[in-house]
């Protein structure tokens, strides 16, 4: 499966002007994040979708949240302030995407 980064190169504008390196389709990013959590973080066998509550299902514990934050920081080349790692932003993948799209330093479209 191609990564979101490969897809980004294909979505450079028709005029040839390069979009920011971090530009990435938010749906592809969401799928990639779900796949990462499913493969590397999730505990237990509860089904996992973008709108699944990660904590109340028991899928992700405190260590898992740290892994998720590190993955996002690495993927998008950003730093997430500890004060932003709150339940409203990280209770499910959909919340994370909404939060990240609202940041001015990421280019989730």
């Amino acid at each position: 499966m191609r990564s979101a980064w490969e897809m980004t190169e294909e979505t450079t504008g028709p005029t040839g002007s390069l979009r920011p390196m971090s530009s990435v389709d938010h749906r592809a990013f969401s799928e990639e994040l779900v796949a990462f959590i499913r493969a590397e973080v999730a505990i237990g066998d509860h089904p996992l979708e973008a709108d699944t509550d990660l904590v109340l299902t028991g899928l992700v514990d405190s260590l898992g949240i740290v892994l998720v934050v590190e993955w996002i920081e690495s993927r998008l080349d950003i730093t997430i302030d500890p004060g932003d790692i709150v339940i409203e932003h990280f209770d499910m993948v959909a919340s994370m995407v909404t939060y990240l799209r609202g940041r001015s330093d990421t280019s989730l479209d």
Binding site: D53, V55, L56, V60, D61, S62, I65, P82, G83, D84, I85, V86, I87, E88, F90, D91
Partner: peptide, 13 residues
């Protein structure tokens, strides 16, 4: 709540 406990900044607030 269980959820808040996983988020230190939410807990502090």
């Amino acid at each position: 709540p269980d959820g808040v406990l996983r988020f230190p900044a939410s807990l502090a607030k």
